[in-house]
């Protein structure tokens, strides 16, 4: 009986979770006229027109491509710089290590709004404004510290004796790192990539500020539709559904490691 009560509670929560998403999906299959005129739980005139509109209009679908570009770039940069650093933090004591680690974390804590204006001026000065690389670098601000933190957690779970044995066997550091150590923390790297993807994908404030036309992300395209015409509810819903799909695919791949990753490798 107790098991049943637990399952009912869980189902209630899941319904609360899925109701808004269901409504979004429902709307994306309706025409805007139908949304505004009748209230119904399932579309009366089922239509793919909203999705067709997004896939044929370049101002919509380039948004997805731009978002993907900077998310991928950011994930690669974050992982490349975070891997050696996390190894350093997990294996060595050195001058100022604890302060350095906390300083890194403070960047994760900094409200992006604080950096808004200087970023805008700075990237314009160095000529990177409105490029994918600008957004990718700006997102490093919070993704690199997070990547270091998660990877450090996973690396600390690998016994140090492995490193020692490898060095005695005559492995050089780069060779040990790439052929032995990285395969050992594969799961950790996957989870870290997932987190970099996630936080870069969901962020809007910096991405919107640092782009104008050429690198405009999908999220910004959506806010501009809200403010300008504001009434294409069907198209907006379809765009919203499409932004959820990459995330859902990525979750499916990391589902077994996700919980551990959210605990930052510290369970």
């Amino acid at each position: 009986m107790r098991m049943k009560k637990r399952t009912v509670a869980l189902l209630c929560y899941l319904i609360f979770l899925l109701l808004p998403i269901y409504w979004l999906v429902n709307m994306s299959f309706k025409t805007t006229d139908e949304i505004l005129s009748v209230f119904n739980l399932l579309p009366e005139n089922f239509t793919w027109a909203n999705y067709a509109m997004i896939f044929t209009d370049p101002s919509w679908y380039t948004g997805y491509i731009n978002s993907m570009k900077y998310v991928a770039l950011n994930t690669i940069i974050s992982l490349t710089v975070a891997l050696p650093a996390a190894y350093g933090f997990s294996r060595y004591n050195f001058l100022g290590d604890k302060h350095m680690f906390f300083w890194l974390l403070t960047n994760k804590m900094a409200p992006p709004a604080v950096f808004l204006l200087p970023f805008f001026n700075f990237y314009q000065t160095v000529g990177l404004f409105d490029t994918s690389i600008a957004v990718a670098l700006a997102h490093c601000l919070f993704n690199v510290p997070l990547a270091v933190w998660i990877l450090e957690g996973f690396m600390s779970g690998v016994p140090k004796e492995i490193d020692e044995t490898a060095f005695i066997d005559g492995y050089s550091f780069p060779r040990f790192f790439t052929t032995i150590f990285i395969p050992l923390i594969r799961a950790g790297i996957g989870v870290t990539a997932f987190f970099c993807f996630m936080f870069s994908w969901v962020e809007l404030l910096l991405a919107r500020t640092l782009t104008a036309v050429n690198a405009k992300p999908i999220a910004a395209t959506m806010t501009r539709t809200v403010s300008a015409s504001g009434m294409d509810w069907g198209g907006l819903a379809a765009a919203g559904v499409l932004t959820m799909i990459p995330g859902a695919i990525v979750i499916w791949f990391v589902r077994n490691y996700m919980a551990k990753g959210f605990a930052l490798g510290r369970v």
Binding site: L17, I21, M198, W201, V202, E203, L204, I218, A219, M222, T223, G240, T243, M244, P246, G247, A248, V250, I251
Partner: peptide, 9 residues
């Protein structure tokens, strides 16, 4: 799922 939806969405 909600964690991976862009914040403005």
């Amino acid at each position: 799922l909600p964690l991976l939806i862009p914040w403005n969405v």
